[in-house]
Computed example of a mutant assay.
Amino acid sequence: MSKKTILLAVSLIVIISGVLLFKPQVSGFISLGHDYTLDNFTECLAENNAIMYGAYWCPHCTTQKEMFGDSLSGVLYIECDSKGKNAKPELCRQNNVQSYPTWIISGTKYSGVQSLQDLSDITGCSLE
């Protein structure tokens, strides 16, 4: 092997080692991969019958959904617009949902985007 090839190989090893050893550590519940903490959180929300009512075209609903990332499938969601997927507008009417998103938790309505911390405080579900 030539000196250039050896130098290039050593340089690559040093760079890769540096990236692996000194990569930033992510804290909280935001991560580069799937977040199992949010899976546990959404499971707890479901166990506490926390239900989000919304509409597929609603930008605030999109914002709320994005907070859950890959764990969104664990959120109990009711689509209120009859044109939406798996729509249940009758449930929205029965619960007098008039704005989106609306959360109904233990019989109490919470209108607008709710922070994960607010949902945690309301339900007692841990974000840890």
Rank of each mutant, 00 (worst) to 15 (best):
Y100H: 09
I78D: 01
W103F: 15
W57M: 08
D35S: 10
L32R: 05
L38H: 06
P101E: 05
A46R: 10
E47W: 00
I30K: 09
Y56Q: 09
C80L: 03
S71V: 01
I15M: 09
E79A: 08
I104Y: 05
V26D: 01
I104M: 06
I105M: 12
S31M: 07
T62Y: 03
I30A: 04
G28K: 06
N95I: 08
S82K: 06
N96V: 00
N95F: 05
Y77G: 06
S17V: 11
I16G: 12
E79Q: 10
Y36A: 09
C61M: 10
G28E: 01
K85L: 04
W103C: 11
A46T: 12
A55W: 01
S99V: 12
Y53R: 03
S71K: 09
W103L: 13
E79T: 04
Q94A: 14
E90M: 03
I104H: 01
I51V: 15
Y100Q: 06
S71T: 03
G74W: 07
H60N: 06
P101T: 07
P24E: 13
G28I: 07
L91S: 07
T37A: 10
C61F: 07
R93C: 00
T102E: 09
E90D: 13
L32Y: 03
E79W: 00
K23E: 07
F22H: 14
V26F: 09
G74Y: 08
Q25T: 14
T62P: 00
